[in-house]
């Protein structure tokens, strides 16, 4: 993301990593997810789906921060993100969960 001033704690904050899942055959190619992805992860692919639209593909999948905005904005239920299980946040969540489950 482009900051006009780098936040003072930018080094200390670890950003979550997400995995983008695209259900291609539901896509109608409106391009909302591509236009509004804050990290510009997505782009139109050259392939066609069953309905003849160009679905998006993750051009820079490693940039995804699991913000879910594509999932919220998509009118077709065709895209969603989930937390990458190998990133530190996922491990933190897991360790947070365990005491909760034992209760």
């Amino acid at each position: 993301m482009n900051f006009w001033r780098v936040p003072l704690d930018a080094q200390d904050v670890s950003v979550a990593r997400g995995i983008v899942h695209i259900i291609e055959d539901r896509c109608k190619g409106c391009g909302y997810c591509i236009a509004y992805c804050p990290k510009e992860v997505l782009a139109f692919s050259d392939r066609f789906n069953k309905k003849g639209y160009h679905p998006p593909y993750a051009r820079r999948p490693e940039e995804c921060v699991n913000c879910h905005y594509c999932e919220i904005l998509c009118p077709e239920f065709a895209i969603f993100t989930e937390l990458d299980p190998s990133c530190p946040q996922a491990k933190e969540l897991e360790s947070d969960k365990q005491p909760g489950q034992s209760n």
Binding site: G29, C30, Y32, Y53, I72, L73, C74, P75, F77
Partner: peptide, 11 residues
């Protein structure tokens, strides 16, 4: 239709 916002509102 492609680009229609009803799907988003429905989601």
């Amino acid at each position: 239709c492609p680009g229609c916002g009803i799907g988003t509102a429905f989601a």
